[in-house]
Every structure is written in C-alpha cells, then in structure tokens.
Design a binder for these strands. Structure first.
Length: 736
DNA sequence: TCCCAGGTAGTA
DNA sequence: ACTACCTGGGAA
C-alpha cells in the first residue's frame, strides 16, 4: 500500500489527484488527475471523463490512493458556477449515510438542473421596429395585438408576448421574420428583488408577539435550535414566522421555507407578497426547466433571498442559509417515497444543525415525533392557543352511522343531510369531505362477483364517471368500462360499490337540485391555476357546496363556510398502519379547521361507525393532549417510533420467483443482533405495483441502535440480479 | 455460424 | 446513468 505522499509523486514531476463526486449511484467519489496549470478546490463543479462520456460532478476532497496513479484520467474543465458550499457537501454525505443511499444519488438531487451549470444565457427579447413599414405583410388581429402590446412597453421575450397578447408563438416568429419586430439581447433574467427594508408587520396578538419575539431571538443567536410553532388553525402561525423571516433577511442571510404542496399554495405566496412587497423564489416540480435553472443559480449566487419550496428545495446550494421553516411539519408529503427515501422535516433539522442555524417547525397538529422531541426538551415550543381576530374554534360532533343510517345506496346520514340543507338555506356554505377520488372505489359484477382489477397492480380500478373511465390510482392505468364481464360474460351487470366524491355529488344533487356545487379533487382540478380559480369561486360564494378530497384540507380560508361534513371519518383508520390514528386525527382536524374561520362560528359533523374511537373522541372533545399522550404511550409500549426505530427493505422486480428468492435470502441473512427484530419477508400490501412484484421486510430496533450499519452489512451479504431491486426505507411512513 | 437481444459489470 | 461486453438462442 502506497502512502498518499508517494502516490502524488511521479518520476517526471508531481501528479495532483483529487476526488470528484458524480451525480450517479456509484459507491463513492472517484479520483482524477488534476491537469497541469488547473486549480481546483473542494466544492468546485468540474467536468470529469467517465467511461466514454463526460459527466459534471463536484470536487469532494483531496483524493485517496485506492486507484493507481496510472489509471487516473485527467479532469476536464472547471465550470463557471459558485462552488457547492461546504455545508451542502456535508449535508449530502450525511443524508447518504443516513438513508443508505449512494452519495452520488443524493448529490443528484442537489444538482437537479444540469443546465444551471452552463454559463447563464442572455435572453432574446423583441421590440417594435420603429420604422417598420410592413413589407407588404397583412396585419391580422393577432399581429395587431402584439404590436399594440409592444408599442410603448419594455422589450419582452417571445413567451411573454404570446402569453400577454394571447397569440401563438408562431405569430411572434412571423412578425419577427417580416421585420415588424427587432431582436434585442437582454442580460440574464434578474432574480426577485430583495426588500431593502421590509414593510412593518401586521399588528400581532400578545401570544403572537411573544412567539415572534422568541423566534427572532433565535435568529439573533444565530445558532442551531429547533422551535415548534404549535398553533390551532387560524391562529396566525404564518404571520409569526414571517417575523422570523424578516429578522433573518435583515441580517442578509437566506431563508428557506418548506411547504408540503407548493404548487397549490397561491394563497401563501399572496400573503408573502403582501408582507414583503416582493415574491419569493419558488421551487417545485411544476417549474419549467428555465425557471428551475434560474432559481438554482440565484440560490447558488446568493441572490435568491427567500426560497419557498417543496421538500427537494432542501438540497439547493444555499451559500448562506440562515433559517429553515417547515410549515405543516406533520404533513406526509414531506416523506419522499422513491429514489433516496428521506423525511424532509427531519433532514431540515439536520440541515439546520450542519449549518448551525435555527429551524422552525409549524403545525396545528404536530407529528408525534416532534411532540416527543418537545417533551424531551430537544425542541423549544411556542404555543398559539387562540384563533386570531376573535374567530372561535368549530364545534365538532360525531354522527353514529350504526344508529343514524343513510338510506340504502346513499352515504349521507339524515342528520347530516338536514344540516346541509339548513346551512345552504341560511345562505352559508358547506364542505363535504370525502378522501376518495372518482365515482366508486370498486366495481364488481353482480352475476359472478368478479372485481375489476388493475392489470399492473394488485388494486381495484376506480370508476371516474365524469371522465368515463376506470382508473388505477397507483400506476395511472386507465380503460373504458367494459360492456360484459371478463369472467362470466354477463352484460351490464356491473355495480359500483362505495362512494367517491363524484357519487356524493350525485347524491347532493338529488337531495338539493337547486344548489351550486363544485368537486375539488386532484383529477378534477388540474394545475395551480385551476385550483386558484376554484378557490376564488368558493370564496366569492359562487358555490354553495364543496365536495372535496384532502385537496381542500390545505390552509384555505372560506369566510362563508360554516358546516363541514366528514362523510367517512373512519376511512384512514383502515389498514393497520402504525400512524393511521395520528394521520386521521391530523387530517380531520385540518378539515374541521375549514369551518367558521371568520366571524361566523363553524360546525363539524363526523360520520363514523366508531364514535368511541380515541381519534373521534379527541376531535369531539377538542382534547388533543390526551389523545397525543395515549398515542405516545402506546407507541412507547410497543417500542415503535418515535421511541423505537424502524427500517423497511422493499424487494421488487418483474419476476415474482426472483423477487421471492432475494427476499428469502435476505430473511436467512437477517442480523443476529438481539436488539434488532426482523419481520417478514411478507408480500407488501400492494404485492404488485406498476408491474413489479413486491416483498417487504421490516426491522425494528430501540432508539440509539446503529440500525444503518447493521442493514448495510446485511444487504451486502445478499447478491440480487439486476432485475431485482432492494430499496431501504429508513423511518418508513407508508406501510405499502 | 452468425447476429441481435437482454442481462451484467464497470466507470477513477 | 450509460455503455461496452458477454451469453445464449434462433434463423441462415
């Protein structure tokens, strides 16, 4: 074994080597030779040869001596991008270690926009040519609109022109070639302006002001600290953490705010703009590639001061991050379920620790993990017990479906139906919540009992009557409703079973034929713009009854909405999931919070077959603390999170026999450590998903066990063919 | 016998 | 992730 010193020396002179992490699922960084005259340091983005191609990567460290000098390839050019900050690099390594993912796969999330590494392009824009005579080209109305638009405005890009003038891009191109428009080159797009001095905040209640002061103090300490902002729906949590954001911006440091579903949070963006005068930089999956490229670069250059984004925004290359806020911290959307599986809320705390900065977690229904951390004094807590501006919490009651039975084939109990009618008659709005898209979750043949299943998954096909199709909610498979049963040949014997929002709408329509209703589900409301428009229609009272899935649960504020009916409160409790009760409580609490957010008081009716269930009892009594205490005690007794640790191994592949072989092999090599309990292998509840057969192994260990290293050595013992994938899910959420 | 497909190992 | 290489089966 050569020492590092001799390995860097060669006969002809000194050979410098450096290790480069590539955004690929390799086992670790690769070493390269640094060419004569090139200077590179850790964090620099470089082009490295790999196989027959060139890949952009990041200089990771000094280099090791694993690979002989003669085998090293020379590094390509250094890219003109700010280096990946040291904190970001440590974060990538930390996440890779924790999630048992190759570091390169984590780096890929940090380098998600390859085009951002290219030099910033200048923007081509158009102006009205002053002396354009038209060259004999006819002026169509569309063309006239473009010229009017540009007459005395600033230069605009082709995309802006076609959007603002409502013409297709070919109209713009045609005008340009005809000489009506002249091309000008603008410098690259500018980032959102920095508010030099943020507008004064709104008047805060004493509770809010107190919480805001404590959060601002944490910013001033500028050290790692986690604070839970625990406030009931409508208590003004956002205004409170806006104060912390203002304080952080005053110190000229960057701010990251995570939201669970940023594409749907137009309301949040409006409030931000009202408070700070400028929009934040956004980061989510609906961005176009050029928006992504700009956002990434602005962050890297430190010019994006406030970024609001989905979980993947955590991996943006902030050079000077001063605060992370995780809003709705209990939300399941923070758990990434494919690729590197990570919990963004937990990783946000890690990012805060590595960057030595404060982290704020906000929720009306904090996760048990976070509440346990508060109890253990690892996290501070700021409570906002009252609704802001005098609004009172809604009154919640249960409807016992065993007694108060809906008519056959219907889903609204007489009590709920009566309340809906009364509320609409009083000129107020109703939300009927049913977390099920489509018309009916199951279709079966009356003649033989055959169920319509997805060909790629072990799931039922959901009828979507508005779209006229049967769809699989797992893989997206969609087909027409067949004429005859594939199993027995009977024609027209299909019976829909169970309710979806569309079927509920049908029931509402027979009940109250004159009402104006809207269905709000991810498949009926496509895109952020359609969602914003529907929300506006509801707020402007153009709709009497909203029938919605969990999409309506998120933070909207409808002043005339006074009744929330939860059609099937038991729905989330099925399935034996560890977090079923917690999640159901959080979701129903959030839905309940839609009622009576203004001066009108709200009322919530929960239809349930088990009104005595702790979740229903807690919702009805409003006693969250007792529910949380009972749930925490039960988890503690069972050694489950947050008191114990879980990890899942998911074995999947197209060939069930090969999948079973690997799963059984893993079962045989289970760790001998008595601390680590192993369950399975067992078929995952969706034993077939997108054409891949799935088996699951669950490992459970007390807190403090080095579960990752045990699993790493465990998996290393089993060789799987390329067609069979072994995924590790540390801290699994979904039990599917 | 040759060619192509599909699976596999290696990339520094 | 990509790709160069290997193995094997089927048609020539």
């Amino acid at each position: 074994m050569m020492s590092v010193d001799t390995s860097t020396q060669e006969l002809g002179g000194e050979v410098r080597r450096t290790s480069v992490l590539l955004p690929l699922p390799l086992s670790g960084p690769y070493d390269y030779r640094v060419p004569e005259g090139m200077t590179v340091g850790p964090g620099d983005f470089v082009v490295a040869p790999l196989g027959g191609r060139e890949v952009a990567g990041v200089v990771w460290g000094g280099g090791s001596d694993e690979v002989a000098v003669e085998r090293l390839k020379p590094l390509g050019e250094r890219l003109d991008v700010p280096p990946l900050p040291e904190v970001s690099r440590r974060f990538v390594d930390w996440v890779a270690n924790y999630t048992l993912t190759p570091p390169g796969a984590v780096l890929r999330m940090a380098m998600s926009v390859s085009s951002a590494l290219e030099p910033p392009r200048s923007v081509v824009a158009y102006v009205h040519t002053p002396d354009a005579s038209g060259n004999g080209v006819r002026l169509t109305p569309a063309r006239r609109r473009v010229l009017d638009l540009l007459k005395d405005g600033p230069p605009r890009t082709a995309a802006e022109i076609s959007h603002e003038a409502g013409v297709s891009s070919s109209v713009v191109r045609g005008l340009a070639t005809a000489g009506w428009l002249a091309e000008v080159t603008l410098p690259a797009l500018a980032p959102p302006a920095t508010p030099t001095e943020s507008a004064p905040g709104p008047l805060l209640s004493p509770d809010q002001a107190d919480a805001a002061e404590r959060l601002k103090a944490a910013i001033d300490h500028s050290a790692f600290a986690v604070a839970l902002l625990d406030g009931v729906t409508g208590s003004g949590k956002t205004e409170v953490y806006f104060e912390a954001i203002a304080a952080c911006m005053a110190r000229r440091r960057q701010v990251l705010v995570l939201l669970p579903e940023i594409a749907l949070s137009a309301e949040w963006l409006d409030r931000f703009r009202q408070r700070f005068g400028v929009p934040p930089t956004t980061w989510h999956s609906d961005l176009t590639s050029s928006e992504r490229r700009h956002a990434w670069r602005w962050v890297a250059e430190g010019r994006a001061r406030v970024v609001v984004g989905a979980r993947s925004a955590l991996f943006l290359p902030f050079p000077d991050l001063g605060l992370v806020v995780v809003d709705e911290e209990h939300d399941q959307a923070y758990k990434q379920e494919d690729g590197p599986m990570y919990q963004a809320r937990d990783m946000a705390v890690v990012r805060g620790r590595l960057g030595n900065i404060p982290v704020i977690l906000a929720s009306a229904t904090p996760s048990l993990e976070t509440l346990a951390n508060v109890e253990a004094h690892r996290y501070a807590v700021c409570r906002l017990p009252d609704r802001h501006a005098g609004a009172s919490l809604p009154e919640i009651a249960a409807i016992d479906l065993r007694v108060d039975k809906p008519p056959a084939g219907k889903f609204l109990a007489p009590t709920l139906a009566r309340n809906v009618a009364d509320t609409v008659a009083a000129g107020e709005q109703v939300l009927l919540f049913l977390n099920r898209r489509g018309y009916a979750p199951l279709t079966l043949c009356r003649a033989c009992g055959h169920r319509l299943n997805c060909p790629n998954c072990s799931t039922w096909l959901v009828e979507h009557r508005l779209a006229g199709r049967l769809m699989c909610h797992q893989c997206g498979h969609s087909e027409r409703r067949p004429q005859a049963c594939a199993a027995c040949g009977a024609a027209d014997q299909f019976a829909p079973c169970g309710p979806g929002v569309e079927r509920l709408a049908e029931e509402v329509l027979t009940l109250l034929p004159e009402t104006r209703f809207a269905i709000m589900a991810s498949d009926t409301v496509q895109g952020p713009r359609a969602a914003a428009e529907l929300i506006r229609r509801i707020r402007d009272h153009e709709v009497d009854i909203v029938i919605g899935t969990q999409m309506v649960a998120k933070g909207h504020n409808f002043p005339m909405l006074t009744l929330v009916g939860v059609v099937d409160a038991d729905l989330g409790l099925e399935g034996g999931d560890l977090r079923a009760a917690e999640r159901t409580y959080q979701l129903l609490h959030q839905v309940a919070g839609r009622a009576g957010r203004a001066e009108r008081s709200g009322r919530v009716l929960l239809q349930t077959f088990q009104p005595q269930h702790p979740v229903m009892a807690a919702l009805v009594s409003g006693d969250r603390d007792r529910f949380v205490a009972a749930e925490l005690a039960a988890r503690d007794r069972a050694g489950m999170p947050p008191f114990g640790r879980l990890a899942a191994l998911i074995v999947s592949g197209p060939d069930p026999a090969a999948v079973d072989r690997v799963a059984n092999e893993l079962g045989r090599h289970r760790p001998r450590d008595p601390e680590i309990q192993v369950f399975g292998p067992a078929p995952a509840p969706f034993a077939l998903l997108r054409g891949r057969h799935r088996r699951r192994i669950l490992a459970k260990a007390p807190r403090g066990t080095r579960l990752q290293s045990a699993i790493a050595t465990w998996i290393a013992k089993v060789k799987a063919p390329a067609s069979v994938r072994i995924q590790v899910d540390i801290d699994p959420y979904s039990f599917l």
